[in-house]
């Protein structure tokens, strides 16, 4: 195995700008399999932009992105399809639908007909219920997501990533607007996905939590990442 295959994510000298507004100016990052890494930085520093580049949603102007052994520039999302989960700041849940629906969504790419008709098999539903149970959401499967609390919604998003069988979890400030205890419990849960073999890259605002739970903490500043101690 080549050395670079040992990384879940490898960024080399990434440059990105929106028009003339240069955001990333030479970002380097290596995240191993089963590692959890936090990214901090002031608002507007480019954290979300960086996550989107790793997710294959944006293309860097310069540098290369290697995710799960594939170079993303060439094939876009296709080569790693379904193996990355991206939890955006707004969580990406479908309101008006149940928690279970939102978790099952992760299987829609493989079973499009079942998804469109809503006729899921027993094993699909069992798996989704099990994922909800793993994040501590017993018996809320039928609840509409907009009736759940902020922390519960975030756990639904994590359950979806688990059910998806994602290898890489990208989370954008998953604990904003939560009280400290709930936030800590969530971070703990997210980071413990490492035990299931996931790599986790999460944008964090709380420095203490980041340092306590993540293997490494980076700060994005002036368009480059540097490790925080």
């Amino acid at each position: 195995m080549s050395r670079s295959a040992d990384y879940a994510v490898e960024l080399k000298d990434i440059f990105f700008s929106y028009g003339s507004n240069s955001i990333l100016r030479g970002v380097n990052l290596e995240v191993g399999y089963g590692e959890a890494v936090a990214i901090m930085g002031r608002s507007g520093s480019g954290k979300t932009t960086l996550l989107k580049i790793i997710a294959g949603l944006l293309r860097p102007e310069k540098g290369y992105v290697k995710v799960l052994g594939h170079y993303l520039q060439a094939g876009g999302l296709n080569s790693v399809k379904g193996r990355i989960a991206y939890i955006p700041q707004t969580l990406g849940l479908i309101e008006g639908e149940s928690a279970l629906y939102n978790v099952l969504l992760a299987r829609a790419p493989r079973k499009p007909l079942r998804f469109i008709t809503g006729l899921w098999g027993g094993d699909d539903v069992e798996g989704a219920v099990e994922a909800l149970r793993l994040v501590g959401l017993n018996g809320v499967g039928r609840r509409r997501v907009e009736t759940l609390s902020g922390g519960e919604k975030q756990r639904v998003a994590i359950a979806r990533a688990i059910f998806q069988g994602a290898v890489l979890l990208l989370a954008d400030e998953p604990i904003s607007n939560l009280d400290l205890d709930t936030a800590e419990a969530l971070v703990n849960m997210m980071v413990s996905l490492k035990l299931r073999g996931l790599s986790v890259i999460s944008v964090m605002h709380d420095r203490q939590l980041a340092l306590k739970y993540f293997d490494r903490v980076y700060v994005l500043d002036g368009g480059v990442l540097r490790e925080a101690g």
């Binding site: 989107k52 991206y86 955006p88 707004t90 990406g92 969504l105 469109i116 998806q164």
Partner: peptide, 22 residues
């Protein structure tokens, strides 16, 4: 952001449209 996260899951075409419809 909803669209982005569904794309990353691997949804496209008609299933993606149905998710957005719902």
């Amino acid at each position: 952001e909803l669209y982005d996260s569904l794309k990353v899951i691997g949804l496209e075409g008609l299933p993606l449209a149905f998710a957005l419809y719902s």
